[in-house]
């Protein structure tokens, strides 16, 4: 899985990683705060953070000795954009089905009168 979309969805597929994103949605948090909130080991959390960072969903910057974890909204927007594109594909197909069914109804009505 090398394409960005797959990396993003894979990153979002894990409940712990979703909990981390929810936790930092209102503001950056330190790794130790994230460890404390999720009840996992520091290496475990680090692994999840690495996946989220690789997927472009978080950013970490060095501030003094800490590296607070920030949400990267652009990554989430990208995923939302793909989902909407896929939804629009179905919207188009079902709109065509509506038109088709209208024709079928008209034909049935015509045949019924004969």
């Amino acid at each position: 899985m090398t394409d960005p979309l797959s990396r993003t969805f894979l990153a979002l597929a894990d409940p712990t990683r979703r909990a981390i994103l929810a936790q930092i949605a209102d503001g950056a948090q330190t790794v130790s705060a994230i460890v404390a909130a999720n009840g996992l080991s520091q290496p475990g959390i680090s692994k999840h953070l690495k996946v989220l960072e690789g997927a472009g969903l978080i950013r970490r910057e060095r501030v003094a000795k800490t590296r607070p974890v920030h949400l990267d909204a652009a990554g989430l927007q990208k995923a939302a954009g793909w989902i909407d594109h896929y939804r629009q594909h179905w919207e188009g197909a079902f709109d065509r089905m509506d038109a088709l069914i209208d024709q079928l109804k008209a034909e049935e009505a015509k045949n019924g009168r004969q």
Partner: peptide, 16 residues
């Protein structure tokens, strides 16, 4: 799998 779901979303049928 989650990867397969991502592939389906990315495909979007012919326009994908």
């Amino acid at each position: 799998s989650p990867e397969a779901r991502a592939a389906v979303i990315a495909s979007g049928m012919p326009d994908g």
